[in-house]
Design a protein around this nucleic acid. Structure first.
Lengths: 225, 225
DNA sequence: ACTGCGCAAGAGCACCGCTCTCGTCCGTGA
DNA sequence: TCACGGACGAGAGCGGTGCTCTTGCGCAGT
């Protein structure tokens, strides 16, 4: 393990970064299905076979992009939902939701890559699932410290189990019932953004800003914020 | 225009149906991205070029499958949400939602085809959008005749506009505010089902039945059913 | 019976992911 | 210092894809 990286290692790192950059650009321009190893190689002036020294497979290149996309998305959500002086819980929550939508609108192909239909045959591994948990956990963290709105009612066992699994993954002191409600809001948020991006709202709420804002406010209402 | 179809015409119709059937099977087995004109041709013992007499393009074959899928899905939802003696509005709504989820779980690739990320470069035409409107309209029809829960509050103009566009597309006598709420529930429902099918719920609410049922009940609550 | 059109087949083009081989050049241990 | 092993890039090649064009056959209407 040399303290100073050798020339080979530097070159390898740089070329890896270049490959990722070119792949990122192709993804942003034409989407995941159009991302081709050969096209990336062409863009870099390399033989396509050379790329396989850096990414054993197209799927591995895609995985790297997925992890990047999850990370970008989570950065945006975390920044918007972070606690700050004078920022109410509700503002943190709605801000986080709006940040997610804004990121998705700005990076539609990346959003589709992580929250659209999975590439067939593709299986996410622990890297992608870990990266994917950050954004919803950032929203869940907004609820930290709230009290159970209906502490006397029993929570369905399977829901309680799911909530406990989420708690184990990083929910602080959020009551299980609220964890369930937050998960429902999370899927609703994904549905909102996916519907907008994938054209399900065509001819109805087409510039979807007002609809999205109203929906996000409704989610905040539902969580009692 | 012969009253009795000629042998050629019958053959053409049959072969078209055979092609669609084989394509449907491939779609159900391996997903849209893996659907290949050549493979369909192989399965039918034809030259791949012969298929192009029936579907000018792979996308056109896909469009036919999309329309079919939308239709199947709408059939399921409409049947479950239809008015029937002794069936409450709430039962019709939750039944329709559950029918959508059940259909999606049973036909994951078809669901992904219509409600997942769009195939890049693919553009839906009026056929697909018309077919896609049936299922949400069936759920909206459950609300027909209900009264505005907050008639005094003003509805944001852009939301009112969207609601009126939906009304023009077939919402009966549903107050605009409820149309907006129903649209929000529709996107939430899609988010629920997509999250389950696309693996976003992995390691949390994994057998998602309880979570889905609870979410659907919450949607019904939100609509005041 | 003849003619024209619908049809299926095959070859072919440009692209894809991926593999294998081959010469080269760098980094390291002797 | 030098030799060797391993990392590297290039290129050819395999089997797959969507799609086009040409060719020949057989049915259908005049």
């Amino acid at each position: 393990m040399p303290a100073v990286p050798t020339a080979r290692e530097r070159a390898r790192r740089e070329l890896t970064a270049d490959i990722l950059e070119a792949a990122r650009r192709q993804l942003a321009e034409s989407g995941a299905a159009a991302l081709s190893v050969r096209a990336v190689a062409r863009e870099l002036g390399l033989a396509s076979s050379a790329l396989y020294r850096y990414f054993a497979t197209r799927d591995e290149l895609l995985t790297a992009l997925i992890v990047e996309a999850y990370g970008d998305l989570a950065d945006a959500v975390e920044a918007a939902a972070a606690p700050r002086r004078g920022r109410s819980r509700r503002a943190r929550f709605t801000g986080g939701c709006r940040a997610l939508r804004a990121w998705a609108v700005e990076h539609p192909h990346e959003y589709a890559l992580v929250h659209g239909s999975p590439v067939p045959g593709y299986r996410g591994d622990e890297r992608t699932t870990a990266a994917g948990a950050r954004a919803p956990l950032a929203l869940l963290a907004v609820l930290d410290g709230l009290e159970d709105p209906a502490p006397v009612a029993r929570l369905e066992p399977r829901l309680a189990e799911g909530a406990s699994r989420i708690a184990a993954a990083g929910a602080g002191a959020v009551p299980p019932r609220l964890v369930v409600a937050a998960a429902q809001c999370w899927t609703a948020l994904l549905g909102l953004v996916s519907s907008e991006l994938f054209g399900q709202l065509a001819n109805t709420f087409d510039p979807a800003d007002a609809f999205a804002d109203a929906t996000i406010e409704a989610l905040a209402d539902r969580l009692g914020l």
